[in-house]
Structure formats: C-alpha cells, structure tokens
C-alpha cells in the first residue's frame, strides 16, 4: 500500500504544476497588468506600482511564473490588493466559519438523503415513489437564491426564530445561534438532488444478480435491502461524499454572502468584486492541493469499503 500512496503522490505533482500553470495563465497572462485591472478601484498610484513590482509585471513571463511558484510553496502571497491584509492570514481565519456551517451540512444532508433514498427505493414503482421524485425535481428547479431570500424573510424577518445575519467570536454561539438557519437552508436544498442520486444507486443494486440469490436463500425483503443492497450501495455513496468533501472548504458562498458569515466563500466573492487577484489565486491553488489530498485519502479508504479494490 505504501507503494500505492507514493505512486499517487508522485502523480499529483504534474497536476499541481498544471493547476499553478492554469492559474498563472488565467490571472497573470489573460488577466494582465494589475494597473489596468485595478484602474478605478485603487486610487493610490504608489500602491499600484508596488503591486506591479511584486508581481514582476515588467519581467519576462517565466520569471513571473517562478515568482508565483515560490509564493505557493512559501505560503506567502503577499497582501490583498484591496484590504492589504496578509493573504495567508485571510485564508486561515476564514476557514473556521465556513467549516462550522459546512461540516454539519454535509453530515446531516448525507444522513437524511440515504435514509429517504432507502425508503423510496423500498417502495419503488409506487405512487409515493413517483410523487417524491417529481417533488424533488420541482424543488431542484427553484433557484437557491429564491430559497435563501424566502427563508431569510420567513424565519428571520417575519417569525424571528433566527437572526437574519451575523456572526460572533464564540464558536458555540455561532453553532447554536447564527449557523442553524443557513445549515437548515443548505440541508433543505441539498437533500433533493442527493436523494435522487442515491435512489438510483439503490435501484442499480437491486437489479443485480446477487440480490436474486439473497431472495432465493429466503432472506426477507427488509434484510435484502438493509444488509445486501445497502452495503454495496455504500460504495458509490462514499464516492459521492468524497467528491463533495473538498467543496466543504469553499462552502456555500451564497449563504455566507446573505448571512454575513465571514467565511472563505464570501471572501472569494468579495475578492472577485474587487478584482483582488492574490486572494483568488491563493485560495484556488491551495484548495486544489487539498482536493488532491482528500481524493487520495478517499481512494485509500476504498480498500476497506470495497474488497475488490486492490492496490498495485
């Protein structure tokens, strides 16, 4: 297995380099001269000159690329073009609030989706099944924005159960007072597509030969579902969760924007608005690396979930 991990890490290197290259091309080449980009956003000419020097704008592209690579590996992207806060500091402080919301969302959504998917798969083909599926489709077609606007208005403004916006310094207060409404919102919206997906996983498994064997052995239908099918369906479900895991770090930027949560997602949106390239570049590159690491961990975990997987 060590050989497998080493090989994977080795394979990550060209990809990481590719990401760096992509971001570089996008922001340094296509994006171009910060002077033009920031025109109208920053009035101080000295500041702009400073930025240009740091980026090495007047130097040949490969030098600029080297500067960028160095930045990535020393975790030093300089300062935000708009707030002048250190970019590394920005990233580290914003991750917390994002995770405070996103981790509960991930767990609760997955749990509920799997539960409902099993129930719906159990009654497949019936009217209930079709109604639930259509309800999901309709629910998914309403824009997330509409949900946020309505929920905020209903639960925060009209009913006053939760604050409409805000965040505090205390973790516990955040978790129990400020986070619930956004979490509830994300779960409500997130269950529908996952329910559909997981239901299809269950149905795929139900039609397999080994299910027929289980029935032939006299296993009652409930046992077939909960033991045989579930255990197999867990494989694609975990794949799905694994794919969603990196997204947890960016969080739902819409939620953070609407609810004024000082998270990484909102930070990126603000950065886009202000053309604050260093922030965007840094977040992108680091999240790409985190994604690759998470993928590796998920793949390793596969061995325990799917006995057919072997590491060569």
């Amino acid at each position: 297995m060590t050989a497998y991990v080493i090989r994977r890490v080795w394979q990550m290197i060209p990809t990481i380099f590719g990401v760096i290259l992509l971001i570089f091309i996008l922001f340094n080449w296509v994006g171009g001269d910060p002077a033009q980009v920031l025109a109208g956003k920053i009035s101080n000419p000295d500041q702009i000159a400073n930025i240009r020097r740091q980026l090495g704008v007047d130097q040949p592209y490969w030098v600029q690329l080297l500067i960028f690579v160095k930045q990535v590996f020393t975790f030093d992207f300089g300062r935000s073009w708009s707030t002048n806060e250190e970019v590394s500091h920005i990233i580290l402080t914003r991750v917390g609030p994002t995770l405070t919301i996103m981790l509960p969302v991930l767990f609760i959504t997955t749990g509920l989706s799997v539960l409902f998917a099993v129930l719906v798969a159990y009654v497949r083909g019936t009217l209930t099944d079709r109604m639930v599926m259509i309800a999901c489709t309709v629910a998914m077609s309403i824009s997330f924005l509409v949900y946020i606007i309505v929920f905020q208005w209903l639960f925060g403004f009209i009913l006053g159960w939760f604050p409409v916006q805000g965040w505090s310094e205390s973790f516990w207060k955040n978790l129990t007072y400020y986070a619930p409404l956004p979490i509830m919102l994300a779960v409500f919206v997130g269950v529908a597509p996952e329910l559909r997906l997981y239901r299809s996983f269950f149905l795929d498994e139900i039609h397999q030969d080994y299910v027929r064997t289980a029935r032939a052995k006299g296993v009652p239908e409930k046992g077939v579902m909960l033991k045989h099918v579930m255990r197999n369906a867990l494989i694609p479900i975990l794949t799905n969760v694994g794919i969603a895991l990196p997204g947890v770090f960016v969080g739902s930027f819409l939620l953070e924007v609407f609810f004024s949560v000082p998270g990484l997602g909102r930070e990126v949106v603000t950065a886009v608005n202000r053309s604050d390239f260093p922030v965007i570049k840094a977040v992108t590159v680091y999240l790409a690396i985190i994604t690759m690491v998470i993928n590796l961990l998920v793949d390793v975990m596969y061995k325990f979930v799917d006995p057919r997987v072997s590491f060569k």
């Binding site: 990809t15 997204g247 960016v250 997602g265 990126v268 992108t284 790409a288």
Partner: peptide, 9 residues
C-alpha cells in the same frame, strides 16, 4: 487540473 479545483471556485 480542472477537476481538482472545486467547481464554484
């Protein structure tokens, strides 16, 4: 390269 960056990002 494209898929290691989270889609929204």
């Amino acid at each position: 390269i494209f898929t290691s960056i989270p889609y929204i990002l």
